[in-house]
Design a protein around this nucleic acid. Sequence first.
DNA 1: TTTTCATCTTAACATTTATCAACGAGAATG
DNA 2: CATTCTCGTTGATAAATGTTAAGATGAAAA
Lengths: 201, 201
Amino acid sequence: MLTQIKAYYKNILPNLSEEDWERLTPCFTIQQLKKGDYLTRSGEVCKQVSFVNKGLLRFFYVVDGREICTGFVQENNYLAQYDSFLTRQPSAGNIDALEECELINLSSDDIQNLYKAIPIFETFGRKIAEMLFIIIMTQTNRLLTLSPEERYQVVLEEHPYIIQRVPQYMIASFIGITPEHLSRLRNKMTGKTSRQKTKIV
Amino acid sequence: MLTQIKAYYKNILPNLSEEDWERLTPCFTIQQLKKGDYLTRSGEVCKQVSFVNKGLLRFFYVVDGREICTGFVQENNYLAQYDSFLTRQPSAGNIDALEECELINLSSDDIQNLYKAIPIFETFGRKIAEMLFIIIMTQTNRLLTLSPEERYQVVLEEHPYIIQRVPQYMIASFIGITPEHLSRLRNKMTGKTSRQKTKIV
DNA sequence: TTTTCATCTTAACATTTATCAACGAGAATG
DNA sequence: CATTCTCGTTGATAAATGTTAAGATGAAAA
């Protein structure tokens, strides 16, 4: 059960001792989600972070009755409604399961205690925050510097798995266009020789 | 000289001891920038973080010969080409001074040493990363969920100082439109009664 | 199996936004 | 003072993208 998450911690914290790991594991709780289940809903305060042991989830907002995806998280990554988690304010976003999921959770309270009790865990928190920052900054930069077609191309190249597991209309909102428009772009792109254009990030 | 930055640290780390502060200050170096000077250039690896003691700077990319602003940082904030700083890879972005600036710098090497030497400094690093994450995540969400007009409205409401100190064409690229289009939106907006629309984040 | 539902595609049309060019105001410079 | 230069505005036009509606396909459900 904990094989993957232990490897994840060891990768970020090569110096993590067996003792510290043993102090960590009692804090873990397991959560199962079925396809379509919500992990967090708009208006809630997020009080945990989840390691995705199995499955795939999405972040999304509902604007004017439409769902807009802002991110996807698959196995072997950490996931939370971080804005809400960090600010302790209700989030406007939702997270739900696109597939059957198995999560390993860590509560806010436990995390705060771990920060105090295990110095190296503070490093873990910092590195997670730094990773998330880079991911989200990359996305922002792409929204501002790339065309929709280029953004789709990047998704294809960097996250080929997403194409397999996520409906196209979700990808469309993720790159900031309508499903119909993405369909046309795809149609236009097929058969093209690989282009070289300015790519930021 | 260090009044502002000390208050900044004390705010983030209320428990910061006078001793720890004294170990920190020798690492600071002062940098002056004139309007138009670059702090970091595309292609460079960022090896420091800067506290803005005075002035205003912008992040920007050059795409197809055009400058696209992705952020602004004014006095009393930390600033760096963080993607490059964290990954130790060359950045595609630039930072330059929109006004005469005074910066208080901390080098990568010193930061790494401080992480080891002063445990509470690790907390500082984590909180900075968390703050940056929230800022940039908010921007991404707005690019995906708000119209250009709404995005401009948000800038007006949240950063009225930016309007005063930054040329409009930079604001335009920051919210993802052309200067001409922003000019038209502003024209259209004047005289309107305050609207209430769905606002995410 | 049949039926329903979700997803993707396509077309016609509308709207938004970009492009290109010109002009004017005001600041900076000589 | 005259002269650039930067910046914002406006207009005409083009391109990109959204909207609405319809149909096709295949998966899920009855």
